[in-house]
């Protein structure tokens, strides 16, 4: 199930997130689709999954929905002050 991701694709995603970091740190899956206009959503998912497995991105969940962000970024990280 591992995703696939080129260096160029990784850069695109990381640049996008860094560019928005002053506004917010977490984005819905749909927000990444415009970065890859030639890719189907399922192919974009492969890119993001690869970045998750590579430790570049992490998921954040509201329980009902899930968002993607750069690992460790933002005010509400996944685990709050637990050892």
């Amino acid at each position: 199930m591992a995703g696939v991701c080129t260096d160029e694709e990784r850069e695109k995603v990381v640049d996008f997130l860094n560019g928005k970091s002053s506004v917010k740190s977490k984005f819905y899956f749909q927000d990444f689709l415009p970065l890859f206009p030639d890719k189907k959503p399922r192919e974009v998912k492969k890119v993001l999954s690869a970045l998750i497995d590579g430790g570049v991105l992490e998921y954040w969940s509201s329980g009902s929905t899930t968002m993607y962000g750069l690992k460790g970024a933002g005010k509400q990280s996944a685990a709050e002050g637990e050892s």
Binding site: V23, K24, S62, G74, Q76
Partner: peptide
């Protein structure tokens, strides 16, 4: 502003 990313609360 310290606890939250305000745009996320707005989007929710």
């Amino acid at each position: 502003d310290q606890l939250c990313e305000i745009p996320l609360a707005v989007a929710a």
